[in-house]
């Protein structure tokens, strides 16, 4: 495994952010996160699905079955209104948190 491990809760945030652009299936979400962070962040691959299902269970995501580009059946996830609100709150909290960490590290 390369890159840093993710803090608990961070994975949720990254998934919601990735899906807020467009609905994706699981593999694509993982790949987006990896590529988006230029390989720095990588999802513990086995942890992705439980996180997706958990978020769906909480009502932050909804899912439906569709087709991939190559025509295979795949489950696509999309952020709900509640999920979008949650993303907003958590993003703000994250920004505050990382700002605070930066402030200390940069001092």
């Amino acid at each position: 495994m390369s890159g840093s491990d993710l803090f608990t809760g961070t994975l949720d945030l990254l998934i919601l952010r990735t899906l807020s652009v467009e609905p994706l299936h699981g593999y694509a979400i993982g790949r987006r996160i990896r590529e988006g962070s230029e390989g720095v962040l990588s999802v513990e691959e086995g942890a992705l699905y439980p996180a997706l299902h958990r978020l769906e269970g909480k009502g932050f995501l909804e899912s439906e079955w569709g087709k991939t580009d190559t025509g295979r059946r795949a489950k696509f996830y999309r952020v709900t209104r509640v999920g979008a609100e949650h993303l907003g709150v958590e993003s703000a909290r994250w920004a505050e948190f990382s700002g605070a960490v930066h402030a200390i590290l940069d001092r």
């Binding site: 299936h25 699981g26 593999y27 993982g30 790949r31 691959e45 992705l48 699905y49 079955w65 991939t68 295979r72 059946r73 795949a74 489950k75």
Partner: peptide, 17 residues
């Protein structure tokens, strides 16, 4: 079956990559 299919798809695509 859905759960299996979902994971199977992931593994296929990852292998392809």
């Amino acid at each position: 079956a859905d759960i299996r299919e979902e994971i199977e798809l992931y593994l296929d695509l990852r292998a392809q990559e």
